[in-house]
């Protein structure tokens, strides 16, 4: 009875460890595929289109609306202290430091990460990956590497679009609708936000999230049980794990970058 419970605990622990090990081996394989990718930029191009270009709409609309909501809510609070001029600082700092990288990563995980997992999982279920191996083509290098780097390159660019449109949305609401002074909005923002401290740290965050989201999505697909139920479970897990990893890592990165 007790030994059975202990054995079950040990089994799940070992399975989790084995999963982490497989994920790292996969990442090593993906990175080892870079030399093979360089002479075939077209593979990367197709993935930049799938992950980057097709995500622009949702990122642009979300960024704009998040910025507009920040403008409204920020104005409500700042107005009570007579500090409406700081609206620009508040909107830009929250977007560039936190919301831009984090919300973009969550949206990309939902919009592109789930699609990647389903695609790879179905390739495995329909034995397309095995067929590639039959033809002496390494499926990790041929299929996974371009997808990984497509996601990694897209992430900071999408996050920058999100933040830029968010700032414009906040400006539209603050200056256009609520009557905050245009000059104060921009000049306070420029004076308070530092290039190295705020912007570069935000870009570093989204680079980290790009690795995590693409990695989790590809691993879940590649490691999926090759059945319909298995692919479905893997897709769910991909989104849930990505979201948890992004939010957890964001706390650690924020503590490291802005902790002092």
């Amino acid at each position: 009875m007790i030994t059975e419970a202990l054995a079950r605990l040990g089994r799940s622990g070992l399975a989790a460890l084995a999963g982490i090990g497989r994920a790292h081996l996969l990442l090593a394989g993906i990175v080892a595929g870079v030399p093979a990718l360089l002479p075939r930029p077209r593979l990367l191009l197709a993935q930049l289109y799938n992950i980057g270009v097709l995500s622009v709409l949702i990122i642009a609309v979300s960024g704009l609306f998040v910025g507009m909501v920040l403008g409204l809510q920020g104005y409500y609070v700042l107005n009570q202290f007579g500090a409406e001029e700081s609206l620009g600082v508040m909107v830009a700092a929250s977007l560039v430091r936190e919301l831009g990288p984090v919300v973009t990563a969550l949206l990309v995980a939902g919009r592109a990460g789930s699609a990647l997992t389903a695609e790879i999982g179905l390739m495995k279920a329909t034995e397309q990956l095995s067929a590639l191996e039959m033809m002496a083509v390494d499926p990790v290098r041929r299929v996974l590497t371009p997808r990984f780097f497509g996601g990694w390159i897209s992430m900071p660019l999408l996050a920058a679009m999100f933040s830029a449109l968010g700032v414009l949305g906040g400006w539209f609401v603050g200056v256009g609708l609520l009557g905050v002074d245009d000059g104060a909005f921009w000049s306070q923002m420029k004076a308070k936000l530092d290039f190295r401290e705020d912007l570069v740290n935000g870009v570093i965050k989204s680079l980290v999230f790009g690795v995590v989201v693409s990695w989790i999505a590809l691993f879940q697909g590649y490691d999926a049980v090759p059945t319909s139920a298995g692919v479905s479970r893997a897709t769910t897990r991909s989104v849930v794990h990505s979201a948890l990893a992004v939010l957890g890592l964001d706390f650690i990165l924020t503590a490291l970058m802005f902790g002092d």
């Binding site: 700032v167 923002m189 705020d198």
Partner: peptide
């Protein structure tokens, strides 16, 4: 977008 953030938003 990155350029805009660097020039207009940060210092």
């Amino acid at each position: 977008a990155l350029f805009f953030l660097a020039m207009q938003v940060s210092n």
